[in-house]
Computed example of a mutant assay.
Amino acid sequence: MIDSSEREYRVSTAIINSFINWYTRTIGTGISYYAINDIVDDSKEYLSFDKIISF
């Protein structure tokens, strides 16, 4: 995150599994961001692979 803040999301198990598959892929393959639809206000959040410290 640009401001080093933590984010918390409420998502389905399917989204969690999809994120883990994206995150654990071979470096240099696939897209460099992951999009999550926020169920609270239906906004879209983008997570950048190189900015994730832990999950």
Rank of each mutant, 00 (worst) to 15 (best):
D50W: 00
R7Y: 11
T29D: 06
T26I: 10
R25S: 10
S5A: 05
I36H: 04
D41I: 01
I20C: 06
T13W: 09
I36V: 13
W22M: 04
I31L: 12
I52R: 06
I15C: 12
A14Q: 13
A14Y: 06
E45Q: 11
Y46I: 12
T24W: 01
Y33L: 01
D38A: 04
K44H: 03
N21K: 14
S48C: 08
A35N: 10
S18H: 08
Y33W: 03
S12E: 15
I36T: 03
L47V: 15
A35R: 12
T24I: 03
Y34M: 09
D42N: 13
I53Y: 04
N21F: 03
M1Q: 09
I31E: 13
N17Q: 12
I39C: 10
I20A: 06
R10L: 15
K44M: 14
Y9E: 11
E45D: 13
I27V: 07
S4R: 09
L47C: 04
W22D: 04
F49P: 00
N17Y: 08
I36D: 04
R7C: 00
A14E: 15
E6V: 06
S18W: 01
N17L: 12
W22T: 05
I36W: 04
R25D: 06
I36R: 07
A14N: 12
F55P: 00
I27N: 03
D3G: 05
V40Q: 07
N37I: 13
Y9M: 03
I16S: 01
V11L: 14
D38S: 11
I2N: 05
S32I: 02
I52H: 05
D3F: 08
N37R: 14
T13C: 07
K44F: 02
S48L: 14
I20D: 03
